[in-house]
Design a protein around this nucleic acid. Structure first.
Lengths: 325, 325
DNA sequence: TGTTGTTTTGCATAGCTATGCAATCTTTCA
DNA sequence: TGAAAGATTGCATAGCTATGCAAAACAACA
């Protein structure tokens, strides 16, 4: 229709191609009237690059991950990469999920999950697909990680409790398979130890990163007859559950009777009913680091990249630790 | 390596293909040892179907959309469809986003946004790409919608307020461009009218679907000197903001002084500090309807499908309207 | 064994674009 | 005007798999 060759059409849509302005104009005009849009699929076959990144996540109901996904998706798009989303709840389906991603020839994988089986890791290495992990500790030849400074935050939390003269601290932990949660707990113990708090004083409560599990954990604590005065929760949702349970089950008010710290600084932490002190994972930084890793890994396509970034979390002090709003 | 033709390899990975068990075994064994995985990209070129669905969303920080996305992604994967995620904040970028999706030859689009410009709609129609809208009212030849019964819920909310003898009702609305919010408001007005409440009694507050906007709206109300006794918020996050503002700015307690209803039934509505009565959009149903629409639209590829499903929302009564927990 | 029917296999092609290379056109300058 | 340099264009090909068709292998039966 534009009276030009197919090559010219291709070049008209490629900004860097050698083509005269007039020809490009003709092509674009014809394309517009025909509703033609270039098809990227053949280019994937030729170049071997799809410009699609597999994003594998779970637990979107945690606002922290929702926000992180939002920012990541935006950043990827700004860098000309598409997001192929994979929602995975259990490690079992992760394997098949990655298989599907691979069959679409994704360029890389970003995940907030602890990568499942070793089979997967080996498969990805064999295929030379770069992986970036968010807050998960898996290491390997093609795997890079971006973590917030979980251990450091644990230390800070412990110091804050010590500074407030806490005698009955509580560590409200997430699932054991959650590496980030484990690291926070280790930092917290370490910090308590450094402050001279006897290990026996620490109550450890197991949760599963949900509000309900935080609530229930405190209810269990009451049955044990423990009256806590300082709590560090591995995540804000559990912290909120704990705040409500303290008030409703134990009649304890925050921060008068007990001070609480959470992690993630989700929007709800700033809601007035909770007013929760929390560690803000600087997601912008973490996403930026992730993009750096992706760019580098995709540029040097055949050399495995394996780097670790640790981004400090920032303590946001609010009412739950006695800070005035 | 397996000593067979390329056709045989292709057939080995296709469950329905005509191939002997022995040959398939040989191929799969060789594939496993070579790390070979079938490449779906050429199949896209041949069949014209990519089995990828563009999912275009905004406002993931609203847990309702996060949950919906989660369920949608799961449902799509169970039906053998991939999710190409597109996060979009403003209608401006929507156009370019859709362009990108189209260039990857997605089979269909699911969106929770009011589709932007007419250009986009026309372009999608021309290309024959089916679109399913979540809670957005756009109509057109290739566009289907799955809505919750917003108007009906508005009626129900009004009836509940009337039943409680409310005299100073408030409608806390979302952005005007949000069709779902508008429909809820219309139902609410209608219901108040039906109950004999004078229109002048209704205060309308404009929010933007965030907690802060709900909080601020109530603060503005105080300045106006209005003392509300019943509030219907277009979304739970605004409702939570309102609850906190009522207590902090006006000294009003819920449900003693004022009763409140929200919409979406986000997890936080069940958190004890809010205990918010809300309308639950039956996301499972809505997602199931969406899948039905997609299946049908993809089966009859060249005939435009344009259907509307309305799914009733369920009133979940909690403490904010005086229900015992 | 010969015949027929069934299953399996390989051949060859299509699908659409990007790009190296050669050919053509345009510009510049002597 | 002619030549050389530069810009633009078209040709032809590659990329990997699914599938129709024909050939081949196999099974069943008389």
């Amino acid at each position: 229709m534009a009276g030009v060759s197919q090559s010219a059409v291709s070049r008209a849509f490629s900004p860097t191609a050698s083509i005269s302005a007039r020809t490009r104009q003709k092509v674009l005009a014809a394309a517009a009237s025909l509703g033609y849009r270039p098809n990227r699929i053949p280019a994937i076959m030729l170049s071997g690059r799809s410009y699609m990144v597999g994003v594998v996540i779970g637990g979107l109901q945690n606002p922290f991950y929702a926000t992180a996904l939002e920012q990541l998706a935006t950043a990827l798009r700004e860098n000309g990469l598409q997001v192929m989303l994979m929602h995975v709840e259990d490690a079992v389906t992760l394997d098949s999920a990655l298989d599907q991603l691979v069959s679409y020839r994704i360029d890389a994988v970003v995940t907030s999950l602890a990568i499942g089986s070793d089979t997967v890791v080996r498969a990805l290495s064999q295929l030379g697909i770069p992986v970036v992990c968010f807050n998960s500790s898996r290491v390997g030849p093609w795997i890079s990680t971006v973590n917030s400074n979980n251990h450091g935050a644990g230390l800070t939390a412990a110091r804050l409790l010590a500074h407030n003269g806490i005698r009955y601290p509580v560590w409200l932990t997430g699932p054991v398979r959650n590496a980030a949660s484990r690291a926070r707990g280790e930092g917290f113990r370490q910090g308590l130890h450094d402050a001279g708090s006897p290990p026996a004083a620490l109550s450890v409560l197991q949760g599963d990163d949900t509000y309900d599990s935080g609530y229930d954990a405190i209810a269990r604590l009451k049955k044990r007859g423990v009256r806590p005065d300082g709590i560090f929760a591995s995540n804000d949702m559990m912290a909120c559950g704990a705040i409500d349970a303290l008030r409703e089950c134990m009649g304890l008010h925050c921060p008068r009777d007990v001070i609480i710290l959470g992690y993630d600084n989700i929007p709800q932490a700033a809601w007035r009913s909770y007013d929760l002190t929390s560690f803000s994972q600087h997601t912008e930084h973490m996403v930026a680091r992730t993009m750096e890793l992706l760019d580098e890994a995709l540029a040097t396509q055949d050399t495995p990249l394996s780097r670790t970034y640790v981004v400090d979390a920032q303590l946001i002090e609010r009412g739950s630790t006695g800070c005035a709003p």
